[in-house]
Design a protein around this nucleic acid. Sequence first.
DNA 1: CGAAAATTTGACATGACTCAACTGGAGTGG
DNA 2: CCACTCCAGTTGAGTCATGTCAAATTTTCG
Lengths: 190, 190
Amino acid sequence: MYDSLFQHIQKFTTLEPSDIDILESCLNLSQIKKKEHVLKEGQVCNTMYFIVKGCMRQYIINLRGAEQTLQFGIENWWITDYLSYHNHVPSHFYIQAVENTDVIAIEKPVLESILIQMPQLERYFRIVSQKSFGAAQMRIKFLFTMSAEERYHHFNNLNPEFVQRVPQYMLASYLDFSAEFMSKIRAGKV
Amino acid sequence: MYDSLFQHIQKFTTLEPSDIDILESCLNLSQIKKKEHVLKEGQVCNTMYFIVKGCMRQYIINLRGAEQTLQFGIENWWITDYLSYHNHVPSHFYIQAVENTDVIAIEKPVLESILIQMPQLERYFRIVSQKSFGAAQMRIKFLFTMSAEERYHHFNNLNPEFVQRVPQYMLASYLDFSAEFMSKIRAGKV
DNA sequence: CGAAAATTTGACATGACTCAACTGGAGTGG
DNA sequence: CCACTCCAGTTGAGTCATGTCAAATTTTCG
């Protein structure tokens, strides 16, 4: 059941069979129901989630009370609030399942002890988070340089299958425009 | 001269005296003149830069030919294009000195070999990049939820001294509005 | 089947942009 | 050290991309 994680780790570092045994004894799978939260604003985030199957999102509620999605995560992604996790401060974010989702949830103390036993995992998390940061920079680039319509088409071209998986209003907020405007773009009325 | 880096590393992991010796033999300081580039769009980014003193920025040139700053880096920050660095693909970004800046530049092969000799540095880079990613998420949150004027005041309150260090037009593009609009915000005409 | 949620549509409003002209310093070279 | 240029910043007028609101329609799901 943890194979997808082991395979992902082994893209970036090596695991001995004994490491796999240790990991199997520490990890546990959990199932998050669609719309269920694993983190809410104001809570301290103490867990990292690896998505085995399904889709999660990180979002905020803005001043007008509307949800805005900052990040989606699908199979083989980690999702958490790193600032809250590291600094032990209340989170600004909600993390919620978009579909019924299977995750490997690792509590901070467990992960800390795993990292001490298996320093080569530091390498795995280092590379994964550097790539995530790189992706966040590209995301900001697209937000800066493209119009709403361009952002939609660009995202749609890169992730046609993903667009089918999430409600339009969530994707609209991820791309930083209103659900109504998304509707007009799709209808070609803009 | 490398003390600021050693101190920064020791916030997150431990360095033995022998490690410091090795690092001293591998690192080298370089001075980047104001407006000089260390990376241009289209080049593969093969180096990470630790800022000892000064200020750098990462920017793009948009379709209208205007520069837009995606990221500033000051003392004790790393700056690079992680996607280009990891995937060995041409960068979308420029990285340039905003002031005369002293950096520790580490080439990828050098860093790779250092990381193999000193696995505890993986931990350092893991934590630094996770925090950077967390900061990027907060940045996206602010871009999403605040008006131009709010972004300016918010940034100004958090970093009053930094605002003095960079030209207004650069800061305006970082906050994602035009230089003219910045001028109107500052004059209270908006 | 019915209620609730998501999407569509149209009318109207507005925050922020673009463009162009003007002002004020900061360098630079004769 | 003056004159000139150049770059950063300011201001105002006009425009537009996208938002908001409200109502109608469609889809989802208990």
